[in-house]
């Protein structure tokens, strides 16, 4: 009777079998990509980049519009004196 160590080694050697590389299951790659997209909050990186750029442009437009509105609202108070005089003249001529 051989010792257990030797039996174990022979058992391992006998159990070695050339395992053919297992083929990837059909549709496995598609499933992975779909799962990754589903788990990602922004979907694909391209969509995320597009959304980021759109957000920056929208912020810039809002900022410019705000500045425009502010300037328009404040400029009415500082009308040059000649405009005020002209307005008065027009109003008085209409009143007559």
């Amino acid at each position: 009777m051989k010792n257990r160590e030797e039996i174990l080694d022979r058992l391992f050697r006998s159990a070695i079998a050339p395992v053919p590389p297992k083929e990837m299951p059909f549709g496995f790659d598609t499933r992975i990509l779909a799962l990754v997209r589903a788990s990602s909050p922004n979907g694909s990186p391209i969509i995320a980049l597009f959304a980021q750029r759109a957000a920056v442009i929208a912020l810039a437009v809002i900022a410019l519009a705000s500045v425009g509105v502010y300037r328009a609202s404040t400029s009415n108070d500082d009308l040059p004196a000649e405009y005020t005089m002209a307005d008065n003249a027009i109003q008085s001529s209409l009143g007559e």
Partner: peptide, 16 residues
Amino acid sequence: DGDDDAARELIRQLYP
């Protein structure tokens, strides 16, 4: 960069 074909190729290469 979001190239699906490259991702699929990577999965095929690494699967075994």
